[in-house]
Nucleic acid binder design. Structure first.
Lengths: 139, 139
DNA sequence: TTTTGTGCAAAGAGTTTGCAACTAG
DNA sequence: CTAGTTGCAAACTCTTTGCACAAAA
């Protein structure tokens, strides 16, 4: 992800956009950010951006296919880099930690269900909620 | 669903609560209501309730296990009677129509994934998005 | 009569928009 | 230079809360 991707999307290469991309790429352990979180990370590293810009840029990135907007629990959107793989998420209700997974069996069933119901499949959203039993850390 | 269920939940039997229950039970073709929709249906049938009451009652119903709060893509919550079956949803992006389905294969995979990841499974949220090819109307 | 519920208005949280200043190309 | 972008404040949408009044038990 770089200036190239921005240009390709018809977006000018600006500081806020590059910085936001950077955060999405290596923003730390967690890589599913709310707009607010991106905003605070930017401020922490001394960037003078507005929250509105963060929202605007993330929305533009979403439309450009650079970013996926995730819709966990309710109120807040979360954003992650769209790396092409179409993974789903499992969220710990205690810690808030989010893991990704891909399950071919589920994917296939979803395709079949859409067909059975007479739908052209567009996308899906699957989130599993649970509580992490702190032990086996292997993803 | 009736006065009994309300009492069982420690809720007084009031007109707003009964009317809201009634709408959830036979509110028309669509049975996944936003708070706003419930509110309007109430007003249409001449009930003098406030939107705040609708939200409060729906939230209480949710806590009492009478209602499920659904979280389709964006901003607004939708509510449906909790009939015990734990179905998922498939939504038409064009018409907004929502169908329900239960898929044992997916359910089982979700259970397994939670276990693989070291989670105590709490719940899940699966929504399939597509566009309805208007033809076979059989659910 | 005591407790719980209700309508209304106001407040919150998250997100979007209008606009003048600014900057990339 | 020109079109696209930004920060700020204000606006908006959905939902929750404070409070005096009203209704259930």
């Amino acid at each position: 992800m770089s200036s190239k991707d921005l240009k390709k999307a018809g977006l000018k290469v600006t500081v806020p956009r590059l910085k936001i991309l950077e955060i999405l790429e290596n923003g730390g352990e967690e890589d599913h950010f709310s707009a607010e979180e991106v905003y605070h990370l930017l401020r922490e590293q001394g960037e003078d951006v507005g929250l509105a810009t963060v929202y605007r840029v993330l929305t533009q990135f979403e439309q450009a296919g650079i970013v996926r907007r995730l819709n966990f629990d309710n109120n807040t959107s979360r954003f992650e880099l769209d790396r092409g793989d179409n993974h789903d998420h499992i969220v710990c209700l205690k810690t808030g930690h989010i893991k990704e997974f891909v399950d071919p069996v589920i994917e296939e069933r979803i395709r079949q269900i859409a067909q059975e119901k007479g739908f052209d499949l567009e996308s899906h959203n699957l989130v599993i909620y649970g509580t992490y039993k702190n032990a086996k850390e292997k993803t």
